[in-house]
Amino acid sequence: MDIIVCVKRVPDTNEADIQISGNFINTKGLPFDVNEWDKYAVEEAVRLKEKYGGTVTAITIGDSESDDALRRAFATGADAAVRVSDDIFNGSDAVASAKILAGAISDIKHDLVLFGAQASDDGYGATGQAAAAILGLPYASLVIKLEADNGKIRATRELEAGMNEVVELPLPALLTIQSGINEPRYISIMGIRKASSKEIKVLSAGEISVNTAEIGNNSGTKTEKLFLPPVLKQTEFLTGSVDEIAVKLAQILKDKGGTF
């Protein structure tokens, strides 16, 4: 089974005090990582390859800094990597990114295409499904379990409130992978370093099948500005030493919570 998996390098903003600068956030000093959902997708691709044979090709959009994301895919077990990179990609929205990725994917042999269900930066949760429509592939989104059998994929989709849905698709197909589908293997810095000698194929807009009048700043949507979310609730922050805070909070739990 030949599998393509799309990955994205994102800033880790979990504990960061994010600063806005224009239509972007200031990423200076922020650690970068592979989008969490994509880690699950890469792991799933490699597991399928280990079980059924075939190849795994990782694809990303971005400048050379995004090579990190591809090296991590190599370290997980990918066989090839493609980075599509062009200044005219800047400003692409979810559908435009899907058009770019679909352009790269259509030139590579594939039985299965995997995307992370969403990215932790933009959070569109849309790129994979849009790519499926562009590629004309049957698809399933938010997949938390999958089994391949006889040219078919049986995928469990996560719905709301603990409900799941099982669907069956013929290959070739596209799936968007939800977090928790597997336990991604540990990737050491050493493993990523070892992958640095592997070849990453770099393609520009002219080398893939994409209409440049529909991507980048010609996307259907544009980010006009970023701003901090309005504060909806006045939280009372407890201050003092750790001991003082603990005593205050215990008293609140007793008085207001009536918990003991």
């Binding site: 929205d93 979810a94 849309a126 499904q129 849009a130 429509a133 989709r157 949507t221």
Partner: peptide, 21 residues
Amino acid sequence: AAGMDFAPGLAAAKNIAITTD
């Protein structure tokens, strides 16, 4: 889970601009 499943592909197929969530 339903809307996320069909909206992006609908937008891409019809070439209609979409933003999500």
